[in-house]
């Protein structure tokens, strides 16, 4: 029942996936010591940017739209805590703490991602 092309297809796609994962890990590990900035976006607009390593007190942010998402920020991590969208994919994603981590609520078009920010060096004198 299985033909040659099926096996080739599975192997080729798996190879692509492995290459993608390696590339993504490479991105994660570059500039590991930079500031981690959580960016909250809704409908293509940036709502908040938070330096999650410098969060003193936990904070809840409500994102209103077609549905409502409640985002919880703690020191070093951020997550969708609660939502009233039908699939709850965003809540199930859990905590984000690493650069490149991503949580999406497609029904509400809300997104949290963690970006690295290189500390800016204006000039070096010796």
């Amino acid at each position: 029942m299985i033909k040659k092309g099926d096996i080739i297809l599975i192997v080729a796609v798996s190879a692509m996936v492995i290459a993608g994962i390696i590339g993504f890990n490479f991105y994660k590990n570059t500039h590991k010591d930079v500031k981690k900035i959580a960016v909250i976006k809704k409908d293509n607009k940036v709502i908040r940017t938070i330096d999650i390593d410098n969060v003193e007190n936990p904070e809840r942010i409500t994102v209103e739209g077609k549905y409502t998402n409640i985002i919880l920020v703690e020191k070093g991590r951020i997550r969708f805590e609660n939502a009233d969208c039908p699939d709850l994919v965003c809540v199930k994603t859990g905590w984000l703490s690493e650069k490149g981590d991503l949580a999406v609520c497609l029904p509400n078009q809300a997104i949290i991602k963690i970006e690295g920010e290189t500390e800016e060096v204006d000039g070096i004198t010796y």
Binding site: M1, I2, K3, D6, I111
Partner: peptide
Amino acid sequence: VFSVVGISIAGAISHNIGQIMVASVIMKE
């Protein structure tokens, strides 16, 4: 070259690719 299983895998993969493309265009992300 492809059996029904292979065609179905190709269909599932391209379905997912199409969806994620539209998602990234809609959310501009």
